[in-house]
Design a protein around this nucleic acid. Structure first.
Lengths: 163, 163
DNA sequence: CAAAATTTGCAACATTATAACATTTGCAGG
DNA sequence: CCTGCAAATGTTATAATGTTGCAAATTTTG
């Protein structure tokens, strides 16, 4: 597996997109899931940047390209993509972002820049372990972890507060 | 400072409520913030249980007791209570819960039972440290952490799946 | 091919949150 | 006291996000 580009830095983003689509196709094939044109297009739209995209943004873009879909169409595609681990939902933003580790079993941490909006997904074992230990200490059975960190990415630090 | 009751266990909940209100009054006095009747009542409603309460639930309860408020009234009270650290917002539920550590500087972890809805707030230093270390490794400047763990609380484990 | 299951279309609606502006209240200085 | 400002609340409308229910089309399966 190749190294992934840091989203903050300039990079050939088309590589991110095509990698994500290829991975998605492979994952769906393995699980006998149908990556239909709508689902694939929604995934592609979400991957158009490293900023999370709202459901209604997706809806608008589909509309702009001639496919006038209704909200359920988009939400169903999103549900599918979530179910197969191809995207993540960012609760604190009511928005969705492509999964950078599709196919790998992982717990994600999201670093969300409040300035540029870019999100970096991490899978840090020490964090996961600490969380699971804390839950275990309370005899709580963990099913799902939402960990979203808001702040300033390296590129935006020092760039704020002056016109 | 006295020990806090575990929300899952039966406890004299009135103690939780009055403690929360007393703390809130003290915190507001110290900061010259006005804990007006509406704000105090919203806080009290939120503390009526250890389950997060939606803004429109609050609205409905205010209505039921004769104070027919509009959404902005509730959201403004919530903003105030959030600002002074008297409540927390649970992003994954779009709901609000009383802060169990008001006045103490802390980063919270929420254990949310999907079965009974009860939320336990923790402030675990190992978790906070691990998260901050992970962010630091990416040169990310942390401002806010959303950590919400969904699963089964001790009381609800084994109680599910059979009528 | 026919039946069954999955996916999509579509209309209506439910829930959550905010904008904009008017009115009232609390309070400090004259 | 009272007056004038700032903070808080009231009011109306609307924006943003998400769901339900059912019909039509498509795909899979026997």
């Amino acid at each position: 597996m190749s190294e992934r580009a840091l989203p903050y830095r300039p990079h050939n983003h088309q590589t991110c997109v095509s990698q994500a689509l290829t991975d998605a196709q492979e994952i769906c094939r393995q699980q006998n899931a149908r990556l239909t044109p709508i689902r694939e297009r929604v995934l592609e739209l979400i991957w158009q940047s490293h900023k999370p995209l709202g459901a209604y943004d997706i809806l608008a873009q589909l509309g702009a390209e001639g496919h006038k879909a209704a909200p359920p169409t988009v939400y169903r595609a999103l549900d599918f993509l979530l179910q197969y681990g191809l995207i993540h939902r960012i609760s604190s933003l009511n928005a969705f972002i492509g999964c950078a580790h599709a196919g790998e079993h992982h717990r994600s941490t999201f670093l969300i820049c409040r300035e540029c909006g870019i999100v970096l997904e991490l899978a840090v074992d020490t964090v996961t372990k600490a969380i699971e230990a804390a839950a275990k200490a309370e005899a709580f059975q963990v099913e799902d972890i939402t960990l979203e960190i808001s702040g300033l990415c390296p590129s935006c630090q020092g760039n704020t507060g002056h016109a």
